[in-house]
Design a protein around this nucleic acid. Structure first.
Lengths: 222, 222
DNA sequence: TAGATTGTTAATCGATTAACAATC
DNA sequence: TAGATTGTTAATCGATTAACAATC
């Protein structure tokens, strides 16, 4: 648990640090300076030192940080030594794509449960994962020690599903719908929102901040 | 184009404002106060007034803001009156899922081009969209007026694909790989990064900030 | 010792918010 | 007119960064 004062901004940078450090380790680089790591990740070196200090990680003056130690410590912080079983709610296009996607299990997030409220889907299976009715959510979440809930339903159902996940004791939720969900304080929610990302991109297209080359000119709709 | 000084934070909130405003419009609410809108979106009312003012939108003292006008103005700002043709690079699991996903076209981002560097895939089609070899990227991007490039390749290819898109004149890129890409200033990049989101969630699980209920207890790997 | 780099303080920056006069 | 709400100033907050003494 170390210090305890880790800002959300720092947490958000940890995956990028780790990615770069794993590359350095693969290239047999044994130590790295905050300056070098900062450049690779695209942040300021003082920020790197701050972030590492907040994790209780120290380097050696005049030398830098030990790459392997950094990889180990950040991996532990990110919980990468453990498996976090996942429940996916919604077996539509997205839910099935997730069930087919092997990258989740490879990263320590095996899908242990796939749920859908369409009775016709119950009993079918996707990539060897059986689809269960949502009515069994609470029992199955407990039975399979689910740690992370993924909401892959239509937006209208997002809050209802979130409530059911929280009631079943799930404390981490990944919301793929455009609908923001309200949860108690101790529950952590992240949103992966394609619609919002696209709208932000089109804002910049629209403003011409991303253009002037001739392509990317809008076509009028209808 | 109005004022011009719109912060990235403001842009990031526009989709949420719009979502809430569309709901209000559907419920025939004609005006809304910054206080009410703020509560719905989960921000401070001064922030709402700031954001709207930065878009050049004014309300009426004692009354509030006109809902329909707000919907119209924000839609224009977000470029929602236009279509932004999309090129998806990578016809693997993710690329095909995107090609199958109707939500993109519904939101004004029709997929006009699907590319893959596997010669065996060239000529096949997904949801009626033909797969072309990556070698034809530049020509087809121009021919089909592509505005937005989506990178759905393995992470290793991300930078190379980004370079090709930029060279072809694409100025908005949505990167689905975990690999950050470097682009010239005038190009806008957004990343949708499942791996990072999951790692952030597992950080909080690991720290027990999202727990104490008994479920979500980690299982040791290997 | 001389050079490099950390760990941390103090300055800076940008964004959020409280507060309130203006005004519908 | 009285009540409500905007538009904006000034205060606050949190995060980033420059700078540098400590020290390997």
């Amino acid at each position: 648990m170390s210090s305890g004062a880790i800002s959300a901004a720092t947490v958000g940078r940890l995956p990028a640090y780790l990615r770069s450090l794993v590359e350095l380790a693969a290239a047999d680089t044994s130590t790295v300076s905050s300056d070098h790591l900062a450049e690779r990740v695209g942040v300021n070196s003082a920020t790197v030192r701050r972030d590492l200090a907040s994790l209780g990680i120290t380097g050696t003056r005049g030398v830098g940080y030990d790459v392997k130690y950094l990889v180990f410590e950040i991996s532990v912080e990110l919980g990468l030594n453990q498996e976090w079983p996942v429940a996916v709610v919604g077996a539509g296009n997205l839910g099935r794509a997730l069930a087919n996607y092997t990258g989740l299990a490879e990263r320590g997030f095996p899908i242990r449960l796939l749920l859908d409220n369409d009775p016709a889907k119950a009993g079918t299976s996707v990539s060897g994962i059986e689809v269960h009715p949502v009515s069994r959510l609470a029992a199955l979440v407990r039975e399979r020690s689910v740690a992370v809930g993924v909401i892959a339903t239509p937006a209208e159902a997002a809050q209802e599903v979130a409530d059911a996940l929280v009631a079943a004791g799930v404390t981490s939720i990944l919301n793929f719908t455009a609908h923001p969900i309200a949860v108690p304080d101790q529950v952590v929610v992240r949103r992966v929102d394609l619609a919002t990302e696209l709208q932000i991109l089109s804002f910049y297209q629209q403003r011409g901040l991303a253009s002037s080359t001739g392509v990317g000119v809008p076509l009028e709709t209808s």
